[in-house]
Design a protein around this nucleic acid. Structure first.
Lengths: 184, 184
DNA sequence: CCTGAGGTATACCGATCGGTATACATTCCA
DNA sequence: TGGAATGTATACCGATCGGTATACCTCAGG
């Protein structure tokens, strides 16, 4: 990735997330990156491709943050995953989940859909692993789906409520579920 | 509301929901409604106003459907609310929740935000009433928030998964929560 | 009777959309 | 040393955006 390419992705990352994908034109992205539109098209070919790169990078950054937090966390690490959503520096409390937002904007068949689905499935799978670790006796798949739904509901409402209250609430509910599933 | 106004709202309802608000121009709405752009602007003044009317009507239609289903339902009616999401004729399995989608597209300060927040709060409040009815002993507020998060997570993922599986899963989880909260 | 509300039809506005073309620098490496 | 590769700067393309203007039709009610 060339330096200009990186600056374009930086600009696109902020703008697509904060303003919405359809509301941001390629000219605004290139201007914000301090780059010509030609450079943007030389690197990414089309806006649709740029959107796919934006989503991929968003997932990679989030995943790196999650790994870092999990490595430093004590049990139960399921709760550390919930906390990672609160500490993720790219998450704007007024905009919620970038992937849910993108799903609301992208037309059917857009290549970004695959990135969105893979991201959500990766989170769900990681959750199942952590739950198997925190509540060895329980039905990890069932509990993982339960926790995943709580998490997604809370994250989706971050943008609507404009606050973290529901994420904290989900955190507490998950803590209780874990206690019930694996009483020490 | 004049006949042309109603047809405009019908067209806008389908288009804004299925294609997204920013992806649909006023000309497409008026053409689909079989109406002139002038008529659209005479009735609604601006696209932003039309969007607010769209969201309000969406809420009213959903609420009427919910009331109808609840009136015909046996206990536990909390589950009837979950079922209403599956039977709502305006819900497209590939597009999820119209309000969550709109929240992803509307700029901050848009008048539609108020409609979105009021809609979600109305659902949460109705849920609390039903839970108080289904599980009289339990902490209705706490359980309502739990169920609400499960519901929102499932609805938000309807559009992403392209299916009802998570809504059914949430339904089953809620059924179990109710059983635990009010053992007969 | 005639006025005003609700319409249609059509043309237009400036701005912005995604995307392309042309011409000219810089830098690095074979 | 001499091309690719990576850039900048600028102008342009047709299409569409939200919104307005003008002219005319129809029909119900005081």
């Amino acid at each position: 990735m060339t330096p200009a390419g990186r600056r374009i992705l930086d600009a696109a990352g902020g703008l697509f997330y904060r303003e919405g994908i359809n509301a941001v034109g390629v000219a605004l992205v290139s201007d914000t990156a301090g780059v010509t539109k030609k450079t943007l098209y030389d690197r990414f070919g089309s806006k649709d491709e740029l959107v796919v790169h934006y989503l991929r990078r968003r997932h990679e950054n989030w995943w790196a943050h999650l790994d870092e937090r999990l490595a430093a966390a004590a049990a139960p690490r399921t709760l550390a995953l919930m906390d990672a959503y609160l500490s993720h520096p790219e998450l704007d409390v007024a905009r919620g989940c970038a992937f849910i937002n993108a799903a609301a904007e992208l037309p059917p068949g857009h290549a970004g859909w695959r990135v969105i689905r893979e991201h959500k499935e990766a989170v769900r799978a990681r959750l199942a692993e952590l739950i198997a670790e925190d509540a060895p006796g329980a039905d990890a798949g069932d509990l993982a789906e339960h926790v995943f739904l709580l998490l997604e509901g809370a994250i989706a409402h971050r943008g609507i409520d404009g606050g973290d209250a529901r994420v904290h609430k989900a955190h507490d509910l998950v803590a209780r579920l874990l206690r019930e599933a694996a009483p020490r």
